[in-house]
């Protein structure tokens, strides 16, 4: 059976006055119906560019995209816009990071939800309104009838993100891309939104790609996680495997640098010196080598490719992977 989404050796570069910025350098992934993939990385790692390239949202004139993105077996990378428009909303939908700016401030939210419904599903005005109200109800908006006529500015950040989710889900897509859906929201609201996404995903058997900088967000919600660094996938594994048997020193460093509530206060954090490489002229070897505590000569000369680990589904790009540790040692 063909996977729902297959990305093969995707490269994205942007032309800038200083040269080509290679934002995504050969990413491959696949996603089955009903599963959740977490894409984790720091700012500048290419996670957002990757998600937008999959959606086909990057500007054609400045972004060069090569490789392949197949949705249900059909190639959609560099597809013409009118073809993509058939996919957007009905097959693939996206929730963006900033609910403040992704809604049109001068249109009532009801209109913004029904617009999608009327265009894609060809519903009448009253049918669309009925569907929109039930969507607002499903995403947990209190008194949907009143909110239907509200402007985005009259809603809080959490409410606006719920509206964004309602719009994204309006045409029952098979794949939901959520790019930092909770960044900028308060912790209690973040928990509400993440739970809402999980519930709706299970109800609808949707596939989801959850892009985030926070390993905590995906730890209990993704089936599989991809760790990106400087435009490359450096490790990919089923969630439990990633957290207990990570092979890539960057993943270890990322996890070790996060303060946790379960640690006693004043726990010394593992810090990674330096910062990610300049994507205008990425280093010849492993992109993480300049910051890696275990780097050796080979790491600076040759770029490692993703290799399969001992556990099925686990792969990493590292010449000298971390020894597989006992679970007891990590906890």
């Amino acid at each position: 059976m063909t996977p729902l989404l297959e990305v093969d050796d995707l490269h994205v570069s942007f032309a800038t006055p200083r040269g080509a910025v290679r934002a995504v350098q050969g990413v491959s992934l696949s996603l089955e119906q009903g599963t959740t993939l977490g894409i984790v990385g720091e700012s500048g790692s290419g996670k957002t560019v990757l998600s937008r390239a999959i959606m086909g949202l990057l500007p054609r004139h400045s972004a060069t995209q090569t490789g392949s993105v197949r949705y249900q077996g059909n190639e959609i990378l560099n597809a013409p816009n009118d073809e993509l428009r058939q996919l957007w909303g009905t097959h693939i939908a996206m929730v963006f990071q900033d609910p403040m700016t992704s809604l049109n401030p001068v249109l009532r939210i009801g209109r913004q939800i029904t617009e999608t419904l009327r265009i894609h599903l060809d519903l009448t005005k009253s049918e669309a309104k009925e569907t929109a109200l039930s969507l607002l109800m499903q995403v947990g908006i209190p008194s949907p009838v009143e909110r239907f006529n509200a402007y985005p500015g009259q809603l809080s950040g959490g409410m606006r993100q719920r509206v964004m989710i309602a719009i994204a889900l309006a045409c029952a897509p098979n794949l939901l891309m959520a790019d930092e859906p909770t960044t900028g929201l308060d912790v209690t609201v973040q928990a509400q939104i993440l739970d809402l996404l999980s519930t709706l995903q299970h109800e609808r058997q949707m596939a989801m790609i959850l892009v985030t900088h926070d390993l905590g967000v995906v730890a209990t919600r993704a089936d599989e996680i991809i760790v990106m660094y400087a435009g490359n996938v450096v490790e990919r594994a089923p969630t439990n495997v990633l957290f207990t048997q990570m092979s890539m020193p960057y993943t270890e460093a990322l996890l070790g640098s996060m303060p946790r509530i379960s640690y006693p206060s004043h726990t010394r954090l593992l810090s990674i010196d330096g910062r990610p490489p300049d994507l205008l002229s990425p280093p010849a070897g492993c992109p993480f080598a300049p910051r890696c505590p275990y780097a050796q000569g080979k790491c600076h000369r040759e770029k490692p490719t993703l290799v399969e680990g001992a556990v099925p589904g686990h792969s990493y790009a590292c010449w000298f992977p971390l020894p597989i540790r006992e679970k007891a040692a990590t906890s």
């Binding site: 209690t188 926070d214 905590g216 730890a219 969630t239 439990n240 957290f243 996060m258 379960s262």
Partner: peptide, 13 residues
């Protein structure tokens, strides 16, 4: 409530 809403980078949490 705040503590229960916090996300931890631990799948076993």
């Amino acid at each position: 409530a705040l503590l229960s809403s916090a996300v931890e980078p631990d799948p076993e949490a």
